[in-house]
Amino acid sequence: MATEAVVSVRDLRKSYGDVVGLAGVSFEIHRGEIFAMLGPNGAGKSTTIEILEGYRDRTGGEATVLGVDPQRGGINWKARLGIVLQSTGESGDVTVKEQLSHFAAYYPNPRNVDEVIEAVGLTEKAKTRIARLSGGQRRRVDVALGMIGRPELLFLDEPTTGFDPEARRQFWTLIESLKAEGTTILLTTHYLDEAAKLADRAAVINGGRIIEIGPVDELGGKEARVPIVRWRTGGRLNEQRTPEPAALVSKLHRELGGEPEGLEVIRPSLEDIYLELLGLDRAGAEAEPVLGEVGE
């Protein structure tokens, strides 16, 4: 079955001098799965992803990527990965097509260059130099370079930064088609709707620790997803969480003898749940100040 771990991380630690970047992170990503890492800036998402890509060395714990320790990954290992880094700044004196054709030659079994250009929606720009593309278009070149080698495992570090809403929708379709082909994907993003749409499972990272991990539609537990009914009586805002919002609304209707003022039924989105998780984590850290001081 599809339970083979493509990425396996146990008690991963990373410190820069006195500063702790990762304070013991553990998770697994299974073959064919899209796994999202969520968290505020500086939480440790990029540190984790760059350790797994082989760019940084860990200071503790274990990590295995495609059966190999990323600190010792060689050419054959790299040929099975696709990497979309968080930042790009290449001068780009080559055209989109030249760049992709050149990189395709690095891989033993690359995808068709024109098909990849088509998939990222740059067909019309194929003969344009990368330097002359807009930020969002350059980002699509990054994504194209990440998938050109037909990777088994694709790292996407904030891939849709700078995309317009339409481009993001197209990108989601692309990622779903990669998943359908069996690609395993590790995604970080600040767009919670993107994570909700694409990911099978997600981890929320804060302060170098995982504070929540699980299937995307179960994050935060059942309570976090209980719908909220909101209405006004007089000038006062009422709010009640209930698993049976329709029953509550019809009861209100009866009691108030008509349409409740300002009625809303809200199902917490992933974003609401995420923010609540971070808020709880912060409150927890303040309650136990010792945990907050990682530098000592």
Binding site: N76, I83, L85, T88, G149
Partner: peptide, 8 residues
Amino acid sequence: KRLGGSPL
């Protein structure tokens, strides 16, 4: 950095 992550 990009080249370093590729099998070149």
